[in-house]
Lab assay of single mutants.
Amino acid sequence: MTFKLIINGKTLKGETTTEAVDAATAEKVFKQYANDNGLDGEWTYDDATKTFTITE
Rank of each mutant, 00 (worst) to 15 (best):
M1E: 11
M1Q: 14
M1H: 14
M1D: 13
M1T: 15
M1S: 13
M1L: 15
M1I: 15
M1P: 15
M1W: 14
M1A: 10
T2S: 06
T2N: 10
T2E: 10
T2V: 15
T2W: 14
T2A: 06
F3Q: 01
F3P: 01
F3K: 00
F3M: 02
F3D: 01
F3R: 01
F3S: 01
K4A: 05
K4I: 13
K4V: 10
K4R: 14
L5I: 03
L5G: 01
L5A: 02
L5T: 01
L5R: 00
L5K: 00
L5Y: 01
I6C: 05
I6W: 04
I6R: 06
I6P: 00
I6V: 09
I6T: 05
I6A: 04
I6G: 02
I7P: 01
I7D: 01
I7G: 02
I7E: 02
I7V: 09
I7W: 15
I7Q: 02
N8E: 11
N8G: 05
N8K: 12
N8D: 10
G9H: 11
G9K: 07
G9D: 04
G9N: 06
G9E: 03
G9C: 11
G9I: 15
G9A: 07
G9M: 15
K10A: 09
K10C: 13
K10P: 08
K10V: 13
K10Y: 07
K10S: 07
K10E: 08
K10D: 08
T11S: 07
T11G: 11
T11D: 13
T11E: 08
T11M: 10
T11I: 14
T11V: 10
T11P: 04
T11N: 12
T11L: 13
L12F: 14
L12S: 11
L12T: 14
L12V: 13
L12H: 13
L12D: 07
L12I: 14
L12N: 10
L12C: 10
L12Q: 14
K13G: 07
K13D: 05
K13W: 12
K13V: 11
K13E: 05
G14A: 11
G14C: 11
G14N: 06
G14D: 08
G14P: 06
E15V: 11
E15I: 10
E15C: 11
E15L: 12
E15S: 13
E15G: 08
T16H: 14
T16C: 10
T16P: 03
T16L: 14
T16E: 08
T16W: 15
T17N: 06
T17D: 05
T17M: 10
T17S: 11
T17I: 10
T17L: 12
T17R: 07
T18G: 03
T18E: 03
E19K: 10
E19C: 11
E19V: 15
E19I: 15
E19T: 13
E19D: 10
E19N: 10
E19P: 05
A20T: 05
A20L: 03
A20Q: 13
A20D: 02
A20N: 03
A20R: 03
V21S: 12
V21A: 12
V21L: 13
V21P: 14
V21D: 11
D22C: 04
D22W: 03
D22Q: 03
D22T: 05
D22N: 09
D22L: 04
A23L: 06
A23C: 08
A23P: 09
A23E: 07
A23K: 14
A23F: 13
A24V: 11
A24K: 11
A24D: 10
A24M: 14
A24R: 11
A24W: 10
A24S: 07
T25F: 08
T25Y: 09
T25I: 08
T25E: 12
T25K: 05
T25V: 08
T25L: 07
T25R: 06
T25P: 02
A26P: 00
A26N: 00
A26M: 01
A26I: 01
A26Q: 00
A26C: 02
A26Y: 00
E27S: 07
E27N: 06
E27C: 09
K28R: 11
K28W: 08
K28H: 07
K28L: 08
K28S: 11
K28V: 11
K28D: 06
K28N: 09
K28F: 10
V29W: 14
V29M: 09
V29R: 08
V29N: 06
V29Q: 09
F30Q: 00
F30L: 04
F30K: 00
F30P: 00
K31H: 08
K31Y: 06
K31S: 04
K31A: 06
K31M: 10
K31G: 04
K31F: 06
Q32K: 15
Q32R: 10
Q32G: 07
Q32N: 10
Y33E: 02
Y33P: 00
Y33V: 05
A34F: 03
A34S: 05
A34W: 03
A34N: 02
A34K: 02
N35P: 01
N35W: 13
N35Q: 15
N35V: 15
N35I: 14
N35C: 09
D36K: 11
D36R: 09
D36W: 07
D36H: 06
D36Y: 08
N37E: 07
N37L: 15
N37R: 15
N37V: 13
N37P: 01
N37Q: 13
G38K: 12
G38L: 08
G38Y: 07
G38S: 09
G38E: 06
G38I: 04
G38R: 08
G38F: 11
G38P: 01
L39W: 13
L39F: 11
L39E: 02
L39Q: 03
L39C: 04
L39V: 12
L39S: 03
D40G: 08
D40I: 15
D40F: 13
G41W: 09
G41Y: 04
G41V: 03
G41L: 02
G41Q: 02
G41D: 02
G41H: 02
E42D: 12
E42V: 14
E42S: 09
E42W: 12
W43R: 00
W43I: 04
W43T: 02
W43M: 08
T44A: 10
T44D: 10
T44P: 00
T44F: 10
T44L: 07
T44M: 08
T44R: 13
T44Y: 10
Y45K: 01
Y45D: 00
Y45W: 04
Y45E: 01
Y45T: 01
Y45A: 01
Y45C: 01
D46Y: 04
D46C: 07
D46V: 05
D46N: 11
D46E: 07
D46I: 04
D46W: 04
D46F: 04
D46S: 06
D47C: 05
D47Q: 08
D47R: 06
D47Y: 06
D47V: 10
D47I: 09
D47L: 07
A48S: 12
A48Q: 11
A48G: 08
A48Y: 11
A48C: 08
A48F: 12
A48P: 09
A48M: 13
T49H: 08
T49S: 13
T49D: 06
T49C: 04
T49F: 05
K50R: 15
K50W: 05
K50D: 03
K50V: 04
K50Y: 10
T51D: 01
T51G: 02
T51W: 03
F52T: 00
F52N: 00
F52M: 02
F52Y: 05
F52K: 00
F52I: 01
T53Y: 10
T53C: 06
T53S: 06
T53M: 10
T53R: 05
I54M: 06
I54V: 12
I54F: 06
I54Q: 01
I54Y: 03
T55A: 07
T55V: 06
T55I: 07
T55G: 04
T55D: 06
T55F: 08
T55H: 08
T55M: 06
T55P: 01
T55S: 08
E56T: 11
E56Q: 09
E56K: 04
E56S: 08
E56A: 08
E56V: 15
E56P: 11
E56F: 11
